[in-house]
């Protein structure tokens, strides 16, 4: 089980950075550039790990990125990778969808604690924007999750995944999928919902004081975490995957859509994004819920 979990984390780390590299490349192509090499994000994180020193604001600041990392890793370990496989399941038999939904909030919490303790007002501004956005962001995703849990009469991710042999939930519950997908775009931190770190508005937002190894950990955890989110979407709506190749294909499709949408849209303000999320995707998902 230990090795299994380690393999899950390692895979998520590699794929997360690879996808982030792809994201930079694809956006570069959208802009008409060549873009950096695929491994550029990986180089960045190694470089940050190798900085001679990193600014530290005390033990809570030190612990903040670690809590973020815990959030990402625990979320990942409670989501099985493959459908009907004995490997790469992590601890998923000990958890369920509700737990995963709550573990997903741990990362913003660790972030908030670490950043709050450094006393930089820009960081906290970013955090408040993030938590405000969370009000709207979680609503459609929760509705979709509730719909799936009621339809499958189980909150076990494995059960929801295997129950899709006749048709993917994305097609049997299309409205739920649309609602969840819009809030998934927000969870990935892409435009138009990237209000948190908006550099033109709040300096660098939450990352303002992160440097050296702390920033490296924050980057690594966001790589792992975004892969965990992709995995969750694939498991809930696209029927999971039988093999790693299928998994990569499915996550890549989702990722590609997120990147392309992110490149096309401008940023909402915080209030706009909450209002949009509470109106449009929530409305769609609620209608979908009524069908369930």
């Amino acid at each position: 089980m230990f090795l299994d979990s380690l393999a899950m984390i390692a895979l998520a780390y590699i794929f997360g950075f690879l996808y982030y590299g792809l994201y930079r490349n694809i956006s570069a192509r959208v802009h008409g550039r060549f873009g950096p090499s695929l491994a550029q994000s990986f180089f960045d994180s190694i470089k940050l790990f190798l900085k001679e020193n990193s600014t530290n604001f005390g033990w809570m600041f030190y612990a903040g990125p670690i809590i973020m990392m815990i959030g990402a890793i625990t979320t990942l370990l409670f989501i099985p990778y493959l459908n009907g496989s004995e490997h790469l399941v992590g601890l998923s038999q000990y958890g369920n969808l509700i737990l995963v939904l709550y573990l997903m909030v741990l990362e913003p919490l660790g972030n908030a604690m670490g950043i709050g303790s450094n006393g930089n007002p820009f960081g906290v501004m970013g955090i408040t924007r993030g938590l405000t956005r969370l009000i709207g962001l979680e609503l459609p995703f929760y509705i979709a999750a509730i719909g799936l849990m009621i339809a499958n009469h189980s909150a076990d991710i494995g059960v929801i995944m295997t129950n899709q042999s006749e048709g993917y939930n994305a097609f049997t519950h299309p409205l739920l999928f649309i609602g969840a997908f819009i809030s998934f775009l927000g969870f990935m931190g892409k435009s138009p919902f990237d209000v948190v770190g908006a550099p033109q508005e709040v300096y660098s937002g939450p990352a303002t004081e992160f440097s050296g190894k702390f920033f490296a950990i924050a980057l690594s955890q966001s790589a792992i975490f975004s892969f965990a989110k992709l995995l969750l979407m694939v498991n809930l709506f696209l029927g999971g995957a039988q093999s790693l190749v299928e998994l990569v294909a499915k996550t890549f499709v989702l990722f590609l859509v997120a990147v392309l949408v992110g490149n096309v849209y401008a940023r909402f303000t915080t209030a706009q994004s909450v209002e949009f999320l509470v109106r449009v995707p929530t409305g769609i998902a609620l209608v979908g819920l009524l069908f369930v």
Partner: peptide, 17 residues
């Protein structure tokens, strides 16, 4: 890690543009 965590000297040593 190789990177040393250097404690800031003062609470007001924040990056503030």
């Amino acid at each position: 890690m190789r990177s040393k965590a250097v404690k800031v000297r003062d609470r007001y040593d924040i990056s503030y543009c």
